[in-house]
């Protein structure tokens, strides 16, 4: 059975156990470091491919940032045969019920929303998390809408968006994030057209 305890063997046992387990953890950490990073990139890539039309470039490699309203946003251009077919804008809102909500929003070149994909959030399961694609029809209503003529706020506030039942705060935050994504998108298109004009 268990050994008698003396100061020496207590200290040495604890020391050895800590040493062995921290070495082991260091090893596992080193092994899993790359897959963890790869998983994060894969997540971004898969949400990009969901929110923009079919493309053949690597949007993560072409990523650039834009400043809007004091924040910087990441924009992933989607290209097919060298031609830009759409932009995925990584946008966020800090007004969610549980704090920050990060959303990937994809725009066609005519300014309509192709699709949205929630990257991270801490909304209540069963309530606010219905904004996540596939969990309810909430996110579907934005597809194909152009924020220029689709009022991006919930009906309660005089907009065109059907809020999630009992989750007005989340719905408002979602709309806010899309709104700023659209502003960022407009900045990109402007530059794009300027460039084209310069080429001609």
């Amino acid at each position: 059975m268990a050994k008698e305890s003396s100061l020496k063997n207590m200290v040495s046992t604890l020391f050895i156990v800590c040493l062995v387990s921290s070495t082991l953890l260091g090893g596992v950490y080193a092994i899993t470091k790359e897959p963890i990073e790869a998983a994060a990139i894969a997540k971004t890539n898969s949400s990009i491919s969901q929110v923009v039309p079919a493309f053949d470039n690597d949007p993560s490699a072409d990523v650039f940032t834009k400043e809007f309203d004091g924040n910087s946003y990441k924009i992933y251009p989607a290209k097919k045969g060298g031609e830009i077919v759409g932009y995925a804008v990584e946008t966020f809102s800090t007004n969610g019920f549980g704090g920050r909500i990060v959303i990937m929003v994809g725009f066609n070149l005519d300014g309509t929303i192709f699709n949205t994909s929630v990257l991270s959030h801490s909304e209540t399961p069963g309530l606010g998390d219905k904004m996540v694609e596939g969990k309810s029809t909430f996110s579907v209503q934005f597809k194909g809408k152009n924020p220029a003529d689709f009022k991006m706020s919930v009906k309660k506030d005089g907009g065109d968006v059907d809020a999630i039942t009992a989750s007005t705060i989340t719905s408002r935050a979602f709309c806010g994030a899309l709104e700023s994504a659209y502003e960022v998108y407009k900045l990109c298109v402007q530059i794009q057209t300027n460039k084209e004009n310069g080429n001609e």
Binding site: M1, A2, S5, N9, T13, V17, S21, L25
Partner: peptide, 29 residues
């Protein structure tokens, strides 16, 4: 059998915490 009786619980906790961390890293990956 190798662990002195008085530090039994801390040793167990370290072992458990180590496996939990391994699990955390594997799940993240």
């Amino acid at each position: 059998t190798q662990v002195p009786d008085k530090v039994r619980i801390p040793v167990y906790i370290v072992v458990i915490a180590a496996f939990v961390t391994i699990l955390q890293l594997l799940m993240q990956a």
